[in-house]
Amino acid sequence: MKNIVGNKINAIVESITPVTESIKRFKFIPEDGGEMPVFAGGAHIVVEMPDGDIIRRNPYSLMGNIDDRSSYSISVLQVKEGRGGSNYMHNNVKEGDKLTISYPVNLFALGWKAHKHLLIAGGIGITPIISQAQTLMQRMLPFEMHYIARSEEKAAYLNELSQLYGKRFHFHVRNKNSRWSVDPLLLNQPVGTHVYACGPEKLMNNVVDTCTQAGWDKSTVHIERFLAPASGKPYTIELKESQKHITVRKNQSMLEAIEQAGVNPPYLCRGGACGQCETQVVSFSGTLSHHDHFLSDEEKASGKKIMPCVSRVEGDNPHIVLER
């Protein structure tokens, strides 16, 4: 019954494959040899990385073959100056290692009422778009895929995608010398099109702004934002309900510090998008540094709510008391 009801999956890293200079693909198989739970285009898993005395939990989009229940695959871009999750995956994880992963969660699901699906990926944002294209192919639904990267060399899976999707697939180089714009594409879509975008903030904001100005209905614009938690100076937290006093380190998120203290708030995206870990602020000193896309501007200004997965406390004597 594991595929139907369960909490976490004990997985073995079956293989690690270099894809580009800075991207590696990790293939996980279930430790018990059974099947992985079903997933579909847009889904992600959270990978737990025991890094010293803390557990990092990073979300990664599932790619792999959606019909092959024997394994899951993710692609990880190494961000050398990042907080450490992708460096841990690239430097510490070896074939044969055991890792705990979550069940698939889908915050970037396809809209089944769309007449046409327009997939737009920038850089490593290609990973959820790959599984969405697979799902659309399998269900024989009309779609078009656009992949934007700085160069052909940096574009993971370029040849594979071009071969698989032929005329449906379009590649665009965008760098200092070549400024491809997404606007003409968006402005020439038939009514009933749903757009799905994953990539750098700038690209996604561009898609949202252009669609809004062009009068697209909000429900037809799907954005997958995975922000990395911000780093910053250490500060202290008091958890009122659990009566704990903890310190958030430089490269740690508030959520990770709370988890390290043995308190487990609910979470899904760990990237400031889904709202699941929303926490009430009792009081604070310093300033709240909100990095999420979930709370409204008014809520952020009120100082009453915070998304501990990405946001921090900064300024003088930074300290926060949370209702947890």
Partner: peptide, 8 residues
Amino acid sequence: LNVQHGKP
């Protein structure tokens, strides 16, 4: 809206 796969 937040019921997740594996956790009915």
